[in-house]
Structure formats: C-alpha cells, structure tokens
Amino acid sequence: MLSVTEQKDIEFSSSLISQFDEIVTRYPAGKQKAGLLPILHLVQAEYGWVSPEAMDKVAAYLEIKPIEVYEVATFYTMFFLRPQGKFVLEVCRTGPCCLVGAEKIMDHIEKTLGVKEGEVTADGKFSWRGVECLAACGMAPVLQIGPEYTFYENLTEQSVDQLINDLKNKI
C-alpha cells in the first residue's frame, strides 16, 4: 500500500538554498549530483520528511531527473517518505543491542507512547521505529533522535521515561 502525502506550495528558503550552493562546490564541475544525499538530509531537517514535491524541487536544483532523486530517497533508510512525529525515536534492534535488552526497550517505548512502530502519536509529537545497527554496540542499548541524531546510550526503562518526559516539556 503506497499512499502519497502531498506537500503543496513548497518553497525552499534562501538560507536552505545557500546551503545547497555550498554543498555542490565540494564536487568537480558537472558532478553536482553527488550533493544529493547531503541536500536530502537538509530538506528532511527542515520539514521532518522528504515529500515528492520536495524531491522534484531538489531534482530541479541539481539539474537531474526526478526519478534519480526518488530512487535514492527510497533506497536509504534514513529518509522519511511520509510525515513523522516531531521526535522520532530510533532504537537499534540488531544483535549486540538485543543481547543486553533492546527488545525490552522497544516494548517499553511502544507501551509508553501507545503507538505501534512507524505510527505517530495523536498529538503529533512522537513516533518510533527499530533501526539496524547504529555502531554503538558497547553502549547498548541505544537510540537516536534526528535531525541532529542525538544519541542516548545504555538505555533503561527509567532513562527512556525520563527522556520522553524531557521531550514532552521541550515542545
């Protein structure tokens, strides 16, 4: 099931565009497509997700075909193709984290937020998902929160409660 959510009348801000401009200077002339991943990260940081309309605009900026953006945005797991909660808790679910209780942490988050993996809470503040190895196995279990991908290590149910409370107050 693929439902496309629209993001009408999207216009990139001039500060966003100037960041794009800096990114493409990092590559040889004519190879500006290499800026696609860093630019998609900026777009997601700005809007919380990467909409088809935003992808079309990125394609126009980089002078590539829209399909070249779609195929990349759908390949990499970091890009959200539909709106998420304001805070997305991404919990590592791979082997080493599971050896020290990551599955319990995910169950606890599901219970605390009251939404299933990938769903958004009614107030629009939170969503969560399990992600594959975040390369922090010695500090397991771990979770991260975009867009700056702040890291939370050695998680316990108590520390997760604390974190969620802090985030609720932050908004």
Binding site: R26, L37, H41, F75, M78
Partner: peptide, 12 residues
C-alpha cells in the same frame, strides 16, 4: 588538498 565530509543515508 581539499578535504570534505560526505554523509551517507543509512545503508550497511
């Protein structure tokens, strides 16, 4: 020498 950091997108 110019040195740049390039971010990936989450793919092993």
């Amino acid at each position: 020498l110019e040195l740049y950091v390039q971010p990936g997108g989450g793919a092993y």
